[in-house]
């Protein structure tokens, strides 16, 4: 089944388009609107978006594939980003990552630079390392969807995940 862009998402994109003198500028906002609905950007919507913004599909693809925040495959219902960068790493973010992945039932053994996101079998959670989340004074930090969690101890992993069901 090809993906359909819901009316409210297209309305959001149309509204964002009015903010720029050039349609191409609305590409990031449009990708955010699509990902906000599907949790990733389905490949069959690339052509749709390109037509909408009067671009070639490759111009959408090159942006979609560059930016780490855009996903090309479906993550879990709750997507976790653990900060990997220095201050959080010093505060124990690698141990936190292991604890979160274990409690969420996620196998990260195949994670690499090109496939940073790993999803749990039940599809509830996915997890990846993110670079600096700009909350270095309260490390280690992680984001679950839009929520920032600070000073998360590995032993709090279970409790944190239980808040998202």
């Amino acid at each position: 089944m090809p993906h359909q862009v819901p009316v409210e998402v297209e309305k959001e994109i149309d509204q964002r388009l009015t903010r720029y003198p050039d349609k191409r500028s609305a590409l990031l906002p449009a990708l955010h609107a699509i990902q906000g609905h599907f949790r990733y950007v389905p490949e069959d919507l690339v052509e749709w978006l390109a037509a909408k913004l009067e671009l070639d599909a490759i111009q959408v693809m090159e942006v979609l594939t560059f930016y780490p925040s855009f996903r090309q495959s479906e993550p879990g219902r709750y997507h976790i980003r653990v900060c990997r960068t220095l201050s959080c790493a010093m505060a124990g973010s690698h141990v936190l990552m292991d604890a979160l992945a274990e409690k969420a039932g996620i196998d990260r053994s195949h994670a690499d630079h090109h496939h940073p996101i790993c999803v749990s079998k039940d599809g509830r959670f996915s997890i990846e390392f993110a670079e600096c989340l700009a909350s270095c004074g309260t490390g280690p930090v992680c984001m679950v969807n839009d929520d920032l969690h600070e000073q998360v101890k590995p032993e709090d992993a279970r409790r944190l995940l239980d808040r998202y069901s």
């Binding site: 590409l27 090159e62 942006v63 930016y67 670079e131």
Partner: peptide, 20 residues
């Protein structure tokens, strides 16, 4: 933005704002 550190560089930021 969309998670890229280089967008803090002002000309990179401008390219990004232009949808590139």
């Amino acid at each position: 933005g969309a998670g890229a550190y280089i967008c803090g560089e002002e000309t990179g930021l401008i390219e990004s704002l232009e949808g590139k």
